[in-house]
C-alpha cells in the first residue's frame, strides 16, 4: 500500500479557515450587521454580535425581525456555498491564497425565504446553523435554526430556496 501521507494539521486548518474567512468577508451587509463564522471540521456556526442598532422593539427590548431574517439568510447562503466548495477546498482546486472578491465563485441567489419567529430575540448575541436539505445543479433548499442562550430553545427558524451559481463561471 502506498498511501498518501496526511497533510500537517496547520496546513489543513489554514486552508479551510482561509476559505471561510474569504467567503464571509465577501458580503458587506454581513459585516454591517456584525455576523461572524466559526468552524469545527466542516460544521459552521454563525454569530450575530449584539448591537443596539439591531433592536426592532425598544420597549421589550427585542431584536428586529429583519435583522434576524438577514442573519438567517446570510447563514444559509454561506453554508450552502461552503458545502458546495468543500471538495474544491479539500483537493486544492481552489487556491485559498488568491481567494478574494474577484476570484471567489458567485454566491447562491435567494429565490424565496420564509422565517418563523418562535420567540422574541433578546438583546444579546445570537447563533445559527444551517442544514442543506437538498442541493441540486440549479436549485437548493436550506433550513436554518437560530438560538441564543439555549440551543434547544430556538427563537427563529427559516427555510429558503436558492439558485445555484453556474459552475463554469
Amino acid at each position: 500500500m502506498n498511501r498518501k501521507k496526511p497533510e500537517p494539521m496547520q496546513v489543513v486548518k489554514q486552508r479551510r479557515d482561509g476559505a471561510l474567512t474569504a467567503l464571509a468577508a465577501s458580503i458587506p451587509y454581513a459585516q454591517f450587521l456584525g455576523i461572524e463564522f466559526e468552524r469545527r471540521g466542516d460544521e459552521l456556526t454563525s454569530t450575530l454580535k449584539y448591537d443596539d442598532k439591531l433592536i426592532g422593539n425598544p420597549m421589550l427590548p427585542a431584536l428586529h425581525g429583519g435583522a434576524t431574517a438577514a442573519f438567517l439568510e446570510v447563514t444559509a447562503v454561506i453554508e450552502l456555498s461552503w458545502a458546495s466548495l468543500w471538495t474544491d477546498i479539500e483537493n486544492g482546486t481552489i487556491d485559498v491564497d488568491t481567494l478574494g472578491p474577484d476570484t471567489l465563485p458567485r454566491l447562491p441567489k435567494t429565490i424565496d425565504f420564509t422565517v418563523d419567529y418562535l420567540r422574541s430575540g433578546l438583546p444579546r448575541d445570537a447563533y445559527a446553523r444551517a442544514r442543506v436539505n437538498r442541493s441540486g445543479r440549479r436549485y437548493a433548499s436550506v433550513h436554518v435554526e437560530a438560538w441564543q442562550d439555549n440551543r434547544s430553545k430556538l427563537f427563529a427558524q427559516a427555510t429558503g430556496h436558492f439558485l445555484m451559481p453556474s459552475r463554469d463561471g
Binding site: 458580503i27 425581525g65 442573519f71 458567485r106
Partner: peptide, 26 residues
C-alpha cells in the same frame, strides 16, 4: 453601500429588502 450583498455588482443584500418589508408590514 454598507448594505451591499454582492460587491461584484453592487446589488444590495436581500436581507435589507426583507427588513424593509418586515418593518413596513408591522
Amino acid at each position: 453601500e454598507r448594505f451591499i450583498g454582492d460587491p461584484k455588482t453592487g446589488v444590495i443584500h436581500g436581507g435589507v429588502v426583507y427588513a424593509l418589508m418586515d418593518a413596513s408590514s408591522g
